[in-house]
Design a protein around this nucleic acid. Structure first.
Length: 284
DNA sequence: AACCCTCGCAACCGCGCAACT
DNA sequence: CAGTTGCGCGGTTGCGAGGGT
């Protein structure tokens, strides 16, 4: 169907922004607020494409930006979030107040990658470096590998993604405590026991990873509905199986007993219930 | 001082999705 | 229902700064 260019390229400036341009943009947004980026440049008297204005504002001019070096805690948080979310920079940025997706992406590519490699960790799959990289792609979050078509809108297929998380968490726990094998064909009691074990293993894991507790809480939509306003796409519902399988959810809830960071709200897996982990209301 | 190389970051580009017509 | 528009995202590029020779 073709796509018209986002702006009249012929009469737009490109490249670095001048102070004057910055000031115009700031003044305009102060007066009129964000939104309608397409018409903004003209209204603000800027010879820039709307996209460019948006980017400049979000990544550089927004007053709530925390510029400057990343702290060690931020580093660790980014690493953990990346291991869970993959290259979902906007989601990662949502957990780091004052940081932008672009900034985190750049920081990842320039600093953290190197840091992880020096620690012997593969920055892509967060596994040991000497292991063949990704011979088994299933050790990565599935939505990092899905075709682009479904990537841009964060609509993680919960059944896939969090099944994987379960796998990943288990794998980590197992790597810590080998030989704690479980048998198949469990009874409910055995399941409970195993969950307890997993909990213990997970606690150990959390203890091993410095003080930073990145823990997730993901709520199941009690109504079974998705809500687009949260970024959970209903369009995918045809191909995706039901939201989180409850057992997975239980596991996650335990494996990632939330204390410090709860993503239930930001990830938009909504329910009208109170989040078990962070004890906050999720969106209704 | 001049040149080259590397690195970090701001900005651009292309694409997909949702909303709108 | 098809086409269009606007926005947001992730990947990539290009430029300036800084260090080494």
């Amino acid at each position: 169907m073709g796509r018209s260019p986002c702006c009249e390229k012929a009469h737009t400036n490109k490249g670095a922004w001048t102070k004057e341009e910055d000031q115009r943009l700031i003044d305009y947004i102060r007066l009129h607020g964000e939104g309608c980026w397409r018409s903004l440049p003209k209204a603000a008297g800027l010879l820039r494409c709307g996209k460019s204005c948006r980017l400049r504002w979000i990544n550089y001019l927004r007053p709530d930006l925390k510029r400057g070096n990343f702290s060690e805690a931020e580093d660790e948080l980014i690493i953990k979030l990346h291991s869970l979310l993959g290259n979902k920079w906007s989601l990662i940025a949502a957990r780091l107040p004052g940081r932008t997706d672009n900034e985190i992406k750049n920081y990842w590519n320039t600093h953290i990658k190197r840091k992880l490699i020096s620690r012997g960790i593969d920055p892509q799959n967060h596994g040991p470096l000497n292991q063949p990289t990704n011979t088994n792609k299933s050790t990565e979050l599935d939505f990092r590998n899905v075709p682009k078509a479904s990537k841009s809108n964060f609509a993680p297929n919960p059944s896939r993604d969090f099944n994987f998380n379960e796998f990943q968490v288990k794998a980590k726990a197992e790597s810590i405590e080998e030989g704690n094998s479980s048998s198949s064909g469990m009874t409910t009691d055995e399941e409970q026991q195993q969950q307890q074990q997993q909990q213990q293993q997970e606690d150990k894991y959390a203890g091993n990873s410095q003080e930073l507790d990145l823990e997730l809480s993901i709520g199941i939509s009690s109504s079974g509905k998705n809500n687009n306003s949260t970024g959970v796409s209903t369009a995918n519902s045809a191909e995706s199986k039901p939201l989180l399988d409850k057992s997975n959810f239980q596991f996650l809830g335990q494996a990632m007993a939330a204390k410090a960071v709860c993503l239930c709200w930001q990830l938009g897996f909504g329910t009208s219930e109170i989040c078990r982990n962070c004890q906050k209301y999720k969106w209704v």
